[in-house]
Design a protein around this nucleic acid. Structure first.
Lengths: 352, 352
DNA sequence: CCGGAGAATCGAAACGTTTCGATCCGAGTT
DNA sequence: AACTCGGATCGAAACGTTTCGATTCTCCGG
């Protein structure tokens, strides 16, 4: 190959016989440029094989990288295998893309290692943090130190924009629905309580210790309604397999729950499968509720009783938060509505 | 807020009473720095609230952005809802993250619009292109013009590194398996043929026109084995819903197929559900094969007959390609092995 | 015929690093 | 005691843009 370095704006300017600034103005669109000058510059550029202004130089000079960091669960698989999260991400990437912003994936650092990671060094203009814990979120601290505007999904922090849903009220709605059906022994299957989640029955106070925000809020609903779940099973993420495992644990527990409140539809689907494997009929022997409002084709003809949230709207709102922050506006705080959806997975309680 | 601009290295140097270069050396780790100097600089930095070298300045000067672009299907949902792709992405992000590289999501531009998009302007050191078409991939041209090293997944291009699997041989294996079972009327359900895919029966030559590489190769297997599928149904992506829709189309087709070769496990799962809805038993009335080797818990106790590929390994190889390219080495070309997995979704052919 | 407004272009100063060669100093060598 | 060498620090030159305040030129009104 030729050792020749790539052409720069200066080369284009020289070739076209104009000043550097004129070439810059041609590309950036700021300032008045005559049509013939424009074609002349473009001609010179294409002759030289100039591929456009260097993003890095542009970023340094203008202070804008046009990159938004997306801080997710350290294992992308856990974060994105839930279709809801994926739909949100899809909308976010689409919207930000339309605004000329790229999305940089940043796995959230778990251990507060001293080594600076992507979060410390990656170029970005703003960050979106998905699924933050209630306490000790190292990511927020790092972002704060860097002075980057932050949007938090499913959580809040001073100075940060946020997009949330009323997890507690929504879950309480489901619990009351079950209570009205006469259920008293209600189990619950939770999302991870914190980063080191395991699939296991939770002993002791279910709200003790640091908890992921949505997990916390959805558990809180039991307190609000004034009911204590007879079994609490924690999972490692919103996955069918996890739901199956948790379902086995919950349904074979000595307290014999007649209903299971699950913190996601995927988990609920898994619990339904587990029930079937145990020879229990849903909803005859056990009622199951979900959360999110997915369309689980493989459960058909059963439909989950669940709380529906609109993932696309959520994504759009997140993008809007980022936009507002970049424009220097006050950080917005959106709360998304959720809707009760009566399915065929819940029914009147029956002794079993 | 104070209008004071963020501190720079020069500020730190002044505060610590040393030269700018010394501070730089402290942070970059190049060059010898005495321990006491290091602590002195760190003290000054933390006093000033200095958050570390500006990524954009660093990128301009060193020529490295530490960002790798990931070019995917324009709708992230379609690209990532398949667990296999997600697992690959997970491994890629993890490995590159360990190398200090961030992953920037770039939806592939569909229309060759004149407006320069993310692909043209986003800062990156290299790119990974997932699922390229056989012809006219505008993304590759843009990346080529920018002089960025490219790794292609499920495809190849001159000068680019690649990670592929032998789709044709693998699919042929499945077809032969069915032929040995006496199947002659075999339908096939494909991934999108190109970006504007629809869920519909394909009329005419199934290999005509520009095709996504994997779709093409897996269809090619029929030719290799010397069999023409009795129905070809195209889908919009590897989704259960798409499989259900396609299954209905294929199984109610007048040619009454006794087997369906699906280009992904998710599609196969959908076809199985469609068969059940139509009152057909799998594998008694119809055999179904998949592709990928997912663990579809909700199909249990049935297990798909499929070709297994190791997504994590695939991801690791992709990361390795990127690494090699960034190190200036020759572009590697890996072909991943796939393994036949006999499940319970295929059986001897029976008239229906 | 002159002054002034506006359009088009230009020059030069940043932006905040990394990097290369130079400088300084004390320890070891002859 | 002069001489070399390596470790630690420093100065200055890039890196490739954007941006701001000139500068030039043309055209119009008075």
């Amino acid at each position: 190959m030729s050792g020749a370095r790539r052409p720069t704006m200066a080369d284009v300017a020289a070739k076209a016989g104009v000043s550097l600034s004129t070439v810059s103005l041609t590309y950036s669109g700021a300032g008045p440029i005559s049509p013939e000058m424009k074609t002349r510059v473009e001609k010179a550029a294409s002759d030289l094989g100039y591929a456009g202004p260097s993003p890095q130089a542009r970023a340094l000079r203008s202070g804008r990288t046009h990159v938004v960091g997306l801080v997710t669960h350290e294992r992308l698989q856990f974060a994105l295998r839930d279709p809801i999260t994926l739909q949100v991400l899809d909308a976010v990437v689409g919207d930000l893309g339309d605004m000329g912003l790229g999305v940089l994936l940043i796995p959230s650092p778990t251990t507060a290692s001293t080594e600076p990671g992507l979060l410390d060094t990656a170029p970005m203009d703003a960050a979106v943090v998905m699924r933050t814990r209630d306490h000790d979120e190292p990511a927020l601290e790092i972002l704060g130190r860097r002075g980057l505007p932050v949007t938090i999904v499913e959580g809040t922090a001073p100075g940060a924009a946020s997009v949330t849903i009323d997890d507690t009220a929504a879950t309480a709605h489901l619990i009351r629905h079950l209570v009205e059906f006469g259920h008293t022994r209600i189990a619950t299957v939770t999302l991870p309580r914190n980063s080191g989640g395991e699939t296991a029955i939770v002993e002791g106070d279910m709200l003790a210790g640091p908890l992921w925000t949505p997990t916390h809020h959805r558990l809180q609903a039991f307190r609000d309604v004034g009911i204590e779940p007879c079994v609490v099973v924690e999972t490692r993420g919103s996955l069918i397999e996890e739901g199956i495992a948790a379902g086995h644990l919950a349904l074979s527990h000595p307290s014999r729950p007649t209903a299971v409140v699950c913190q996601s539809d995927l988990l609920a689907g898994g619990v339904v499968l587990a029930a079937r494997e145990l020879g229990l009929q849903v909803p005859r022997d056990v009622s199951v509720t979900g959360f999110d409002g997915l369309d689980l084709a493989w459960l058909a003809p059963m439909e989950l009783t669940t709380m529906t949230q609109d993932a696309a709207v959520k994504g759009h709102l997140i993008a809007q938060c980022v936009k507002a922050l970049l424009a220097g506006e006050e950080p917005p705080a959106f709360e998304l509505p959720v809707e009760f959806k009566r399915g065929t997975s819940t029914a009147v309680a029956r002794e079993r």
